[in-house]
Amino acid sequence: MLSRVADSVYWMSRYLERAENVARFVDVNYNLSLDLGNRVREQWEPLVYTTGDQEVFLENYGNFSQRNVINFLTFEMKNFNSVLACLSGARENARTVRDIISSAVWEEINKFYLYVKNSAGDKRLLEEPHDFFHQVKRSSHLILGLLDATISRDEAWFFAHVGRLIERADKTSRILDVKYYILLPTVTDVGTPLDSIQWAALLKSAGALEMYRKSRGRITPRDVVDFLLLDREFPRSIRFCLSEAEESLLAILGTSHSHFRNEAERRMGQLSADLDYAQVDDIIKSGLHEYLDGFQDKLNAVGAAISDSFFQTSPAASNGAVLAK
């Protein structure tokens, strides 16, 4: 597969996942804000911090009002991570690889982009965004299903899958970091139930509340962290994402487990193993934020290595056994 094509498939997939996650964060936050009365700053500002785009926000908007934040995260093209900007990116990438992905996938991505673009002028939407975000999540899930059901498990699929899971792991780590910080339990509070509605909202941001209940029962900060970070089975937990991403990454070159043929595989394997043997109590004790910050740093390094190993292929960089299919 051409490096350029792999690059596009990978980013198409990352941007789609990013769009869905941003939509999910905003939707859950909106729902929660209806319960919290008038403390607007506290409700909406952290969301902009989640995406790391507060500087772009402040350059373009005056205050963290609900309208401003929803617009910024959803439609603002100056924000590269808004839902619309992500979809625009996903569609651009998809357009260049239309011959690789199935036409069903292309068509849904195109429709998805057009739907969000056409919604951008709808003033009412900023006041009542639920139906819109619901539709965004649906579209994302539809594309996910199509990718699964209409594409052979070849390199394109594996690159798409790796992209999606890396993105998802990153997003889960961000929402966990920001919300945990705000709800701010001291070390002695961990393990006791605090305000369950707020913690439940954090779980909902990752679509995790119902599965959390089945596996952990009552809500405690410690178990919430453990579930979103280290659960073995939940498809949005960071550990699950890394372990699946590793599998797909290795499948691209056919590398067997615990081996590596390039920097991407090495870093991915290391990070995934790190999570396999991590323990939540240690992490909380030495600081969740520090841990997640370090994790994001390493995950970014994995992303950079994937780019170097697969997308920037030059005579100097070789994957050893890389053979053109």
Binding site: Y49, T50, G52, D177, I182, F311
Partner: peptide, 24 residues
């Protein structure tokens, strides 16, 4: 934790997050 109903303090804005990766 003590079972008292309290008004939570205005929380800080949140920990600073890294910029997200984008297409090279």
């Amino acid at each position: 934790v003590a079972g008292d109903v309290v008004v939570p303090p205005e929380p800080p804005s949140g920990p600073t997050q890294r910029q997200m990766q984008t297409t090279s």
